[in-house]
Design a protein around this nucleic acid. Structure first.
Lengths: 329, 329
DNA sequence: GTGGCCGATGTATTCGATATCATGGGGTGA
DNA sequence: TCACCCCATGATATCGAATACATCGGCCAC
């Protein structure tokens, strides 16, 4: 910067102004400075600027599984909003490891970023709550009752209810649930929706039809095979995400069953692959892109200390009926 | 930091030393400082440290498509190596937009990160070359002849040759190619391997059997339908990545054809989904995790200005024979 | 006993950009 | 004509941590 100042024969202060507040310097000076910048290939040091201004224009987005394209879609929405407002998104993958989540929180506390969004958190929710008292934090896809941290999600209870009821309406009574991991709020909500729907049936809710998965393919594969050893065996299964649903289909097939004829399957999320798969997956569609957009809007508002009207945003979901449930469309 | 210094009754210099070079301060002082740090919940300001030390311990990884789990696997390898050496990975998604690639390069030039890895670059390779003269840059998955930028990849020519020859050995003669986009080096290499194999057949290479895709599902779907209108139509297709291969299978099926009976399909990459799909995809397996590890090792070595023995690393690939090619295993 | 060295610590400067305050010239209105 | 204001610009302090250099006390060897 000093070099630029020397070359254009002004002070460093003027160089700084020419770059950040062009209207504050005379046109001639501005042009002289710009030429010098060009000639020297000068790029302002982001670190120094951040230090002085006490803001980095970086936001951290923590995702639990970079493999799962559900998050990819959300991130698209977040990036579009962030870039439009001149923020950079730093994606951080935790592979569902709370340790790594903590390490990213340390980055935030070291002030290397201005705020943070969690797409499902594995660390203690009380910890998040406490963290959000000091720094801008938003939850995407997930919320917790009584938490003051702003959040964006769908109504998971109702969505799971809808999915289960769809299977009931197709005539199924023995409907299994392959849920997400126990500790996660999402899982609790989806279990609740499933339970509500099942309790309305004649046969009611059966605990042995319920399994806790990991959200990964392998757990869908393995758990459906467990469930299919029950007698009488389930005729349908609702899986808490699409990846497990695909695992379940392949697991059932490996045992010689046909989907949807012998086993109806409903997933959750509507990842791009759900419609590419064979049979195409019936699933609950989350508005992924909008979740991303809204989450980022909230986060940036928090960072700018703007007032936030709605702290808990609930977006609409939709049942996508395809082939894996056996419905005639 | 001043507060910590005041509370533990030492100077800020000693606080700094106690945290970064514990052996330089006496045990008693160190403990006093640590207690104060704990009490005040002090976290060193990462920005200030970076400015003073002129390094951020961040590395940028630019990926073209966050949806494609091929990159997800590579990133796993990169993250593991980076974290082990106390570096944070900033993932940047470009959605194949050169503009966004440039915007991330600006972040690097603003010194917000210590180095950068590209997983396939869309900007001009001469530009990358020039960039890499000034800052640490590494290419993952891709290399360019004559480029001095370090790179890690497989032998794409040979891999494409192997895939095509496999189809030839299964008796196919009219083998189509759905390639990647024209500008990308990968595409050129895979085309070359395909051409070499086809030229060894009796019927030889036919240009009308070759299409340029986008690496996305839709282009596989659309281009196979174009190709299937040819007469005589191809009996097999080699796709330059798995996503397009799945698109091609679905496209062929939409026309009433069976895979592999009426059309044999071979993909490229071996993304996790390739083996989950139905029929399971025959494909070229890239050692994704190792590509990630090696790329990050190279990048960190560059950052530390360590001497680099091999600037162009070529890792082994493997043909995974599954169902989509119709081979009897 | 004294010179020299080492370990522990404090003081002051530095990193690069920006914000604040100061300055000076030119224009405007009374 | 003079007071006032505004605009363009320069000088300088500042952000928070790291570090070069200075200081001081204690210990050892000659």
């Amino acid at each position: 910067m000093k070099e630029v100042a020397a070359l254009s024969e002004v002070s460093t202060a003027t160089v700084s102004r020419a770059l950040r507040y062009p209207h504050l310097v005379s046109p001639e000076t501005r042009i002289r400075v710009m030429e010098a910048v060009e000639r020297l290939q000068y790029r302002p040091n982001h670190i120094a600027r951040s230090l002085r201004r006490n803001e980095s224009h970086f936001v951290i987005v923590v995702m639990p599984d970079i493999n799962n394209s559900f998050f990819a879609q959300i991130i698209r929405g977040m990036e579009d909003v962030a870039h439009a407002q001149d923020y950079q998104v730093l994606l951080c993958n935790t592979d569902n490891d709370p340790e790594r989540e903590l390490s990213y929180i340390k980055v935030l506390q070291g002030r290397a970023a201005d705020g943070m969004a969690f797409l499902t958190a594995r660390v203690d929710s009380a910890y998040i709550e406490q963290l959000s008292q000091h720094v801008p934090v938003v939850l995407g896809c997930e919320y917790a009752e009584g938490l003051s941290t702003p959040s964006v999600s769908i109504d998971n209870v109702h969505a799971a209810f809808t999915a289960t009821r769809h299977l009931i309406q197709l005539g199924h009574r023995r409907i299994a649930l392959i849920n997400g991991p126990k500790g996660v709020i999402l899982s609790q909500d989806r279990l609740q929706g499933y339970s509500q729907a099942m309790q309305q049936t004649t046969s009611g809710l059966e605990c042995r039809m319920i399994r806790d998965g990991t959200f990964y393919y392998e757990s869908g594969f393995r758990l459906i095979q467990e469930l299919l050893t029950l007698s009488p065996r389930p005729t349908a299964v609702f899986c808490a995400n699409d990846e497990m649903a695909i695992g379940a289909i392949n697991g059932a097939r490996a045992l010689g069953l046909r989907v949807p004829e012998d086993l109806a399957v409903v997933g959750f999320d509507n990842i791009p692959f759900a419609s590419m798969y064979n049979p195409a997956l019936t699933t609950i569609a989350q508005p992924m892109y909008e979740i991303g957009e809204t989450t980022m809007h909230l986060l940036l508002a928090l960072i700018r200390k703007e007032p936030i009207s709605i702290r808990k945003v609930v977006l609409p979901h939709r049942l996508m009926v395809r082939q894996s449930c056996g419905a005639k469309c």
